[in-house]
């Protein structure tokens, strides 16, 4: 029988382990720093942070919670994509299959649905916190702007996801929502001044959103691609900018007088 140190020694002192973990962790100043900047995920953080900046009562962890909700949604969303066809013949039955055939399909869909509601809630609270601590003030003005765009993208992500089950709820929510596009001044066929641009139901904003004059197969495909590819892509890029700028603008805000 080998002792525990001997086993750990065996596990750690070989080429494979050493190729993955470059150094041993010894809880020295150097190693604690190395643990952060030597790790692609953790190196989002600075090596050291100000004590009160990371207290829960200051940030509520709300931005981080939003990111975490986004990650949950990406993971559950990718898995859901394996079971889903964005066509009006199959979309609804695919969701029914999730409910009755796919192992853990119900909880998968539940996680995605409630995670989405949750993300919308926490991103709004995050904005409220940033406002209340005045963290949009110099030098963080630009990053507030990035955050506002991310807030809008969060709404749009949720909104485009509404249609995907192709049930009455999604269909009519999207109908109500995109009807607003028809009211756009100049560019929507019901909007003011649109007659001067010869705008009709077949060439206005709403038509562009839906890929048709009403919610149908094209609208489903469009919302699916916006939902699963286009908006997440843009949001991810903006998130990179957002987090990068938090660091570059001096980290989590601190009292400046």
């Amino acid at each position: 029988m080998k002792s525990l140190p001997e086993i750990t020694d065996k596990v750690k002192k070989n080429l494979i382990w050493k190729s993955v973990f470059r150094r041993d962790y010894r809880n020295t100043v150097r190693d604690r720093a190395q643990a952060v900047f030597g790790n692609v995920f953790l190196h989002l953080h600075p090596v050291q942070v100000r004590e009160s900046a990371v207290k829960l009562r200051f940030t509520w962890g709300m931005g981080g919670i939003t990111l975490f909700a986004f990650i949950i949604l990406v993971i559950t969303g990718v898995v859901l994509m394996f079971y889903y066809h964005p066509s009006i013949d199959q979309a609804y039955t695919d969701i029914k299959d999730l409910e009755f055939q796919v192992p853990f399909g119900v909880i998968l869909r539940n996680l995605h649905r409630w995670g989405a509601h949750f993300m919308v809630i926490v991103v709004m609270i995050h904005m409220f916190r940033v406002f209340m601590t005045g963290s949009y003030k110099a030098p963080r003005q630009f990053n507030w702007g990035v955050g506002v765009i991310l807030l809008v993208l969060t709404f749009l992500l949720s909104f485009t996801g509404y249609l995907t089950p192709w049930d009455q709820l999604g269909f009519w929510a999207i109908t109500v929502g995109t009807n607003m596009g028809a009211a756009t001044p100049l560019l929507g066929y019901q909007g003011p001044f649109s007659e001067y641009l010869h705008i009709t139901p077949y060439n206005d904003v709403r038509f562009a959103l839906l890929g048709g004059a009403q919610v149908g197969g094209n609208a489903l495909l469009r919302s699916y691609i916006w939902h699963c590819v286009a908006i997440p892509l843009v949001a991810t890029i903006l998130m990179m900018v957002h987090f990068w700028r938090v660091r570059k603008d001096g980290g989590i805000s601190k009292p400046q007088k």
Partner: peptide, 28 residues
């Protein structure tokens, strides 16, 4: 002074990483 005005620095690893992990667990 308000909280955070005269601050000392602490290591990210582990105090902050621990908080983040805990929050992630609670949310999950």
């Amino acid at each position: 002074p308000v909280d955070g005005e005269n601050d000392r620095f602490i290591d990210t690893f582990k105090p902050l990483v621990r908080i983040e992990l805990l929050i992630a667990l609670v949310v999950m």
